[in-house]
């Protein structure tokens, strides 16, 4: 009895059943949404029936041509990779300085990096987009990359700072006592130790950038739209059965792209580290 209560202390209570019922409802909705989109994207005609009256892959071909998805996917992946690389290059050194040094004004700097994460994207996105347009950067890839850096750089900093803090500073001292210069401390000792954290942060930035709608939408245009924005434009521009299935096809492509990037990224990082890192981050 004692052992079983330790393992499943809530098992027999009504509250537990309540939780499981809620979870089931959530799961039904989640799977329903996913499956509905996938079925719809392969459906021929689907109106007043349980399932479409036939299956085809031609929606994908149609959507691909109609929305120029080759370019859109290219833009999406390109923007995401650029944003990840830049925010890691900019964010990790800053996180190092914040983790290792106490200096006057540190709290102000932390606040500066925290604000873009706490503020609704629209609040700074609209003035930022206005600035972009006035610099003639509107609807360009440069603008899309730049606006995506605003939440990504602070995100890398906020993720990496606790990660660096938990690396014992004595290890760096030890390297110095062994005769390593600053550059060697970074390349030979710190870089290998930081790799798991950097990869985790990079994956999260990747997912966020691919999924980020508001900021990209404000400055992108034809030729610089990412997939989410293209889907949104498709949904708001057209209405009706035919278009809906094209949108569904596009949504499936979006999910597939996201999953593919995640799978590739996860080849390089242990998922448990990713989860642990997620926890680390959220704590701030």
């Amino acid at each position: 009895m004692a052992a079983s209560t330790l393992e499943r202390p809530l098992a027999a209570r009504p509250s537990t059943w309540f939780v499981w019922a809620g979870m089931t409802a959530f799961g039904v909705f989640l799977l329903g949404i996913l499956v509905a989109v996938v079925v719809d994207s392969f459906g021929r005609q689907w109106f007043d029936t349980w399932l479409p009256d036939g299956f085809t892959t031609e929606r994908y071909v149609a959507a691909w041509d109609r929305f120029d998805l080759g370019e859109v996917v290219g833009v999406t992946v390109g923007v995401a990779v650029l944003v990840v690389v830049i925010s890691v290059l900019v964010g990790v050194p800053a996180a190092y300085a914040l983790a290792r040094r106490d200096f006057p004004g540190k709290r102000a700097v932390m606040l500066l990096f925290l604000l873009p994460v706490l503020m609704p994207p629209v609040t700074y996105g609209i003035p930022l987009a206005t600035v972009m347009y006035s610099f003639g950067l509107g609807r360009t890839l440069t603008a899309v990359v730049l606006v995506n850096l605003v939440p990504s750089v602070p995100f890398v900093i906020l993720t990496m700072t606790p990660f660096i803090e938990q690396i014992n500073p004595a290890i760096e001292s030890a390297a110095r006592m062994c005769g390593a210069r600053t550059r060697q401390v970074f390349t030979r000792i710190l870089a290998p130790l930081l790799v798991p954290g950097i990869l985790a942060a990079a994956i999260l930035v990747l997912v966020r950038t691919v999924g980020l709608f508001e900021l990209t939408f404000l400055v992108s245009g034809p030729g610089s739209d990412t997939l989410v924005v293209a889907i949104y434009r498709g949904m708001t521009a057209a209405g009706g059965g035919e278009a809906r299935q094209l949108i569904s096809a596009m949504s499936v492509i979006y999910t597939a792209t996201m999953l593919a990037m995640l799978v590739v990224a996860l080849r390089f990082v242990n998922p448990t580290q990713l989860v642990a890192q997620v926890k680390e981050t959220r704590d701030d």
Binding site: G32, I33, V37, V210, M258
Partner: peptide, 19 residues
Amino acid sequence: VLPITLGTVLTAQGLLIFA
């Protein structure tokens, strides 16, 4: 954790069809 990767737009599309 799945919905985090789905994003709001796909969720919207799915909801329209499913619900």
